[in-house]
């Protein structure tokens, strides 16, 4: 699904700064970043290590708070929300895919995917089962529903993580280096899966990556350097820049 100017912005970031204090030293991770992401976009955040990609995703994902500026997610100013409201926003609006999959080891594949639905308490058992199995079908793991994460390959675990991120039908999915721990073929499969879900369901995806191949699938690439917003370019332009040796 391609964004249009008329679509509402799901993420709006205005002049955001984030500082980390390490002892007596204040380290700026983001310095006045502005960003607008519209519903249905498939956006990649690129930049070298330490450029602020993960920090930016953390702020959008409401798992961290900005030092300055305004972060609006789904129309809500995150600074104005209480801890409980932020948790609810994460539960109902945002899905997360982590570099290291971060599945609950003692739960089965089915239970891992079902978990956010149990937290939501909106669906009954039969509805939950239907939703989970439908997603596991989509990610090709229906036959592995009873397996534990340690019985799966890295690619399969990341597919479970994708299913878990999408099970609540969030408006926004954040993925921090989702292919970093996978081989190139599996990584490519995961990106294809995310793209497919983006196009089918209209879910907005924002993912960080170093990989030019992965980046090439994005509608747009937001480039960061030293905690600053560099530019927002197309995937084709980003590939050219990468080929030329830039980030």
């Amino acid at each position: 699904m391609n964004p249009t100017a008329s679509q509402a912005s799901i993420v709006s970031i205005t002049n955001v700064t984030k500082d980390y204090t390490l002892g007596k030293v204040v380290v700026p991770a983001l310095r006045g970043v502005d960003l607008e992401v519209h519903a249905g976009e498939f956006i990649s955040i690129a930049g070298p290590s330490g450029s602020g990609k993960t920090t930016l995703l953390n702020l959008i994902g409401c798992v961290d708070t900005a030092t300055g500026g305004v972060v609006r997610v789904a129309g809500q100013d995150t600074k104005q929300l209480t801890e409980r409201q932020l948790t609810n926003l994460r539960l109902n609006t945002i899905g997360f895919i982590f570099q290291s999959f971060n599945l609950v080891q003692v739960l089965s594949v089915f239970q891992n995917v079902e978990f956010p639905l149990l937290l939501q308490r909106k669906l009954d058992k039969a509805q939950r089962r239907e939703r989970v199995m439908q997603l596991l079908e989509q990610v090709g793991l229906a036959s592995h529903a009873k397996h534990r994460p340690n019985e799966l390959s890295g690619g399969q675990r990341q597919r479970v993580a994708v299913a878990r991120a999408l099970v609540t039908r969030p408006q926004l999915v954040l993925a921090d280096e989702p292919t970093a721990n996978l081989d190139s073929v599996t990584g490519q499969n995961i990106i294809d899966l995310m793209k497919e879900l983006n196009q089918k369901e209209g879910t907005t995806f924002i993912f960080s990556t170093h990989d030019a191949k992965v980046m090439s699938h994005a509608n747009a690439v937001v480039r960061l350097a030293d905690g600053k917003f560099l530019d927002r370019i197309s995937a084709a332009e980003a590939s050219r820049v990468m080929a030329a040796g830039g980030h």
Partner: peptide, 13 residues
């Protein structure tokens, strides 16, 4: 990390 993940996906304190 599991606690962080569960909090991130929407588990209340």
């Amino acid at each position: 990390r599991e606690i962080g993940t569960l909090r991130a996906i929407g588990m209340q304190r």
